Simulated scan of single mutants.
Amino acid sequence: MSEPSTPAPSSGALVLFSGGQDSTVCLALALSRFERVETIGFDYGQRHAVELTQRSRIRAGLSDLFPEWRARLGEDHSLAIPTLNEISDTALTRDAEIVFSADGLPNTFVPGRNILFLTFAAALGYRRHIGTLVGGMCETDYSGYPDCREATIKATEQALSLGLDRPMEILTPLMHIDKAATWRLAEELGGEALVALVVEESHSCYLGDRSRRFDWGYGCGECPACTLRAAGWERYRAGR
Rank of each mutant, 00 (worst) to 15 (best):
S101H: 14
G135I: 15
G219N: 10
G163E: 06
C148E: 03
W183G: 08
P111K: 07
V110T: 11
A180K: 06
V15I: 05
L133C: 12
R149T: 07
P67H: 08
R166W: 01
T172K: 03
G191H: 08
R229S: 07
F42V: 06
L189Y: 11
D215L: 10
V37G: 09
A102I: 05
C26A: 09
M1S: 14
C205P: 05
I58H: 09
I40Y: 00
E157D: 03
Y126G: 02
R94Q: 13
V15C: 04
I177N: 04
P146A: 12
M1C: 06
A8T: 11
R36D: 08
N107S: 11
L116T: 15
S10Q: 08
W216L: 03
T132R: 15
Y126R: 14
Q158P: 00
R94H: 11
E3H: 12
F120Y: 13
P9L: 07
S143I: 13
M168H: 00
P82E: 03
E188S: 12
F117R: 10
S11T: 10
R72P: 02
E35V: 04
T156E: 07
I81F: 01
F109W: 15
R128C: 07
A8G: 01
R213H: 13
T39N: 08
M1I: 06
N114G: 12
G19Q: 03
A28L: 08
F42T: 05
R166G: 00
A238I: 04
Y236T: 09
T83I: 13
S211R: 14
G144W: 08
D64F: 01
R72I: 01
D215R: 10
S211G: 13
D147W: 08
P106W: 04
G232V: 10
G135P: 01
L118W: 00
R235H: 12
I115A: 13
C26F: 11
V15D: 02
L160H: 02
L65D: 10
V134M: 07
F34P: 05
R240N: 09
E188I: 01
R237F: 00
L197I: 09
S211N: 09
I115D: 03
W216F: 10
R59T: 14
D76M: 03
H203M: 14
D103A: 06
F117Y: 13
G217N: 05
F17G: 02
L65A: 15
E139F: 09
P173A: 03
I81G: 00
E86H: 08
E169R: 15
I153D: 05
F42D: 05
L79T: 03
L228T: 06
E234K: 15
T83Y: 12
R59A: 12
G125E: 11
T53K: 06
Y142N: 12
A230Y: 04
D165Y: 02
L14F: 03
H176K: 14
E86C: 01
E169I: 14
D89V: 08
A238D: 14
L16G: 05
A196Y: 00
T140F: 09
G131F: 10
F17H: 11
Q158V: 12
K154N: 10
V25P: 02
A159T: 13
W69G: 07
E157W: 00
K154C: 06
S78Q: 14
I40A: 01
L84N: 01
G74W: 02
P111E: 06
D165I: 03
R70N: 10
G217I: 08
V99N: 02
A193F: 00
D141W: 07
L116F: 14
